[in-house]
Simulated scan of single mutants.
Amino acid sequence: MTTVLRSAKAAAILAALGLSLGLMNGVAQAGPPRHRECISPIFLGGSEQWRDLNQRYDVRERIIGPPAPATDDIPDPPGGPGCRTALAGEKWVRAVPPWITATQTEQAAFIAGFKSARYVIDAGTAHERSITVGPEILRSGTIPNDVQPPATRGLPYVVPVSPVLRPLRPGTHTSTLFVTMKERVCTGRGPAPGLSADCLEAGESEYPIADNGPFTVLTGPPPPTP
């Protein structure tokens, strides 16, 4: 019991520092929370269904998300900007910051102009692979009126959410999203939180995630069956 308590205390201290026991030892050995909840790292407030990306997008698997650096308007969510760890043997889904538009006209233009998405896993490595999907992955809606930052309240959005992706081996991985548009589209309001551009050109281009760093797959006990 004492050993367990000491390990738990050490893990809590490391978590507060943004580290993990596995990373400290040079090998990933400890897993993220076993419950699959990805709290939005770029929008806070609103209902639980809005804050939790799993609920918002109706995803049962682990979400690898799009944390953005904290700003005065967007503080770190409880526990820090997570959604960048998964367990070995665990299927996962890639979520990215939504494309927020000034009006429903720009939202409709994005949906009509969207041709396909290509998810590239571990680009430039011996394990690189990609999956291409169509407009069926798009989710759209309206941002609630009680979320942060206030400038986004009540605005339409559309976002690609990947299909379920197969498990990855323990270690550091990358996920890059490329979208193919039939024609040039813009938000009509400037870049959305978490994005570095407000227009996508015709043809294929990288989805402009401002903070698209790597994520980590950690060893640990098999994840519970959803």
Results as ranks from 00 to 15, higher is better:
Pro191Gln: 09
Ile100Cys: 05
Glu37Lys: 15
Leu14Pro: 01
Gly190Arg: 05
Glu183His: 08
Ala109Thr: 07
Glu204Lys: 09
Asp198Tyr: 00
Leu165Ala: 04
Gln49Lys: 13
Val59Ser: 05
Ile143Tyr: 09
Arg94Gly: 05
Gly89Glu: 10
Leu19Cys: 02
Gly190Met: 11
Glu90Lys: 14
Thr105Lys: 06
Val59Pro: 08
Asp211Gln: 08
Gly22Phe: 01
Asn54Ile: 07
Ser116Val: 04
Thr225Asn: 10
Leu155Tyr: 05
Val159Trp: 01
Gly220Pro: 00
Gly22Leu: 01
Thr3Glu: 15
Ile39Val: 13
Arg94Phe: 13
Ser175Gln: 07
Pro214Trp: 02
Met181Ala: 07
Cys83Thr: 07
Asp198Gln: 10
Tyr57Asp: 14
Ile121Trp: 01
Ile131Gly: 01
Pro226Trp: 01
Cys38Leu: 11
Ala151Glu: 15
Ala126Pro: 03
Gln49Val: 15
Glu61Cys: 13
Arg62Ser: 04
Glu90Ala: 12
Thr176Ser: 14
Thr125Glu: 12
Phe178Ala: 09
Val27Lys: 06
Met1Gln: 07
Arg153Cys: 08
Ile209Trp: 04
Gly79Met: 03
Gly45Trp: 09
Leu195Arg: 13
Pro67Arg: 00
Arg189Cys: 09
Leu155Trp: 04
Ser20Gln: 02
Gly213Asn: 10
Pro214Gly: 05
Pro222Arg: 12
Phe43Pro: 02
Glu61Ile: 09
Arg166Ser: 10
Thr101Cys: 14
Asp72Arg: 15
Asp211Glu: 12
Ile74Phe: 04
Leu53His: 06
Ala117Thr: 05
Thr132Leu: 10
Gly46Tyr: 14
Pro81Met: 13
Leu14Arg: 02
Pro191Gly: 10
Pro170Trp: 00
Gln148His: 06
Pro167Val: 11
Pro75Gln: 12
Ile63Pro: 08
Gly141Gln: 09
Val93Lys: 06
Gly194Phe: 13
Phe114Glu: 04
Leu155Ser: 05
Ala86Pro: 00
Pro170Glu: 04
Pro156Ser: 13
Asn54Pro: 03
Val27Leu: 13
Cys199Gly: 06
